[in-house]
């Protein structure tokens, strides 16, 4: 398995990084790793199953709040807090998933779109969760620990996705993505598969949220349930190649780096250039950069214009 080797070697190299870099880089790296986990988790429901979820930032928010409330209000240890957040998110995925996964295509996407905003608004009315003002977590300055935790989570999440890509379960998800009616008549229990995929996605997303909460140590509803975060997950996954194992990783690392570099050079125009990168990427590499490697090997650089010819009117 070449992919397994790449993942393990990559993880080993990344694990050594904190010993050679400075504090500023660590800030960037922890953020990038958490975003990569979110992107890879989204890949399970969005990339493999074909359900474009804009509701994953709900699970992120629940992970953040589950962890924070457990630690601040009940003085539970961090690990237990992570567990609380994960349980909360997975239960939410089950309860929300059963009705909402009956919707197909854009309807599912739209139905999930308001979910994060709505959950955020609800959380902001709960006193136990600090209502509008948010919660302050015990402060620890241990960037290396958070870095290694986030990296470990990314490794487990990616290995899970690798398993999905090579298992019967994953074949069922892909069949649902390609044609749900045909999948059902061929014996795939589509409802159960979709809901389980959403729950898996919610699980990793929530753990990432919990790590983020402890690291950043101050949370409030609008930052925890930020819908634009979900948009970034989708963009990074699609930029890299949804439904592949390594594509979403490449997509999130590259875009995190591009954004970081742009904002340090030309801070005002960074977002603008980011938008232009997205537009160009969709036009020239509509199946993600994972496909570019294959396509360019097969067709040379004409691969890029070939994409336009295939998709234009």
């Amino acid at each position: 398995m070449i992919r397994l080797a790449i993942i393990l070697v990559g993880a080993a190299i990344l694990a050594c990084l904190p010993f050679f870099t400075g504090a500023v880089f660590m800030q960037f790296a922890i953020n990038a790793l958490i975003l990569a986990v979110l992107t890879q988790s989204w890949n399970i429901i969005g990339g493999f199953t074909g359900y474009v979820s804009f509701g994953n930032s709900t699970f992120y928010g629940l992970g953040i709040y589950g962890t924070a409330v457990a630690m601040v209000k009940f003085s539970l240890p961090f690990a237990v807090g992570l567990g609380c957040g994960a349980v909360l998110a997975v239960l939410a995925a089950l309860l929300i998933g059963i009705p909402i996964l009956r919707l197909r295509g854009p309807y599912f996407a739209i139905a999930t779109l308001g979910l994060a905003a709505a959950t955020g608004a609800l959380v902001s009315t709960i006193d136990l969760a600090g209502a509008n003002t948010g919660l302050v977590l015990p402060l620890v300055r241990a960037d290396t620990m958070f870095y290694e935790l986030a990296l470990g989570l990314l490794l487990v999440c990616t290995l899970t996705v690798l398993w999905i890509a090579t298992s019967r379960f994953g074949a069922g998800l892909v069949a649902i993505r390609e044609d749900e009616d045909a999948a059902a008549t061929m014996g795939v229990n589509t409802t159960a598969y979709k809901v389980i995929a959403l729950m898996m996605s919610a699980f990793f997303t929530a753990i990432a949220g919990g790590i983020y909460a402890y690291w950043i140590s101050f949370i409030d509803p609008s930052s925890a349930f930020d819908p634009t975060l979900n948009v970034r997950m989708v963009i990074m996954a699609v930029f890299g190649g949804p439904g592949t194992v390594l594509g979403p990783l490449a997509g999130s690392f590259i875009l995190s780096a591009v954004y970081e570099v742009l904002s340090s050079w030309i801070s005002t125009a960074a977002a603008l250039l980011f938008g232009i990168v997205i537009v160009l990427a969709v036009i020239f590499t509509p199946r993600g950069i994972a496909d570019v490697l294959v396509g360019v090997r097969r067709h040379g650089w004409r691969y890029l214009t070939r994409n336009i010819r295939e998709n234009r009117l």
Partner: peptide, 12 residues
Amino acid sequence: LIVRSAMLNTLL
């Protein structure tokens, strides 16, 4: 240039 591409791409 991309209208015949996947729905996700038009969203993006």
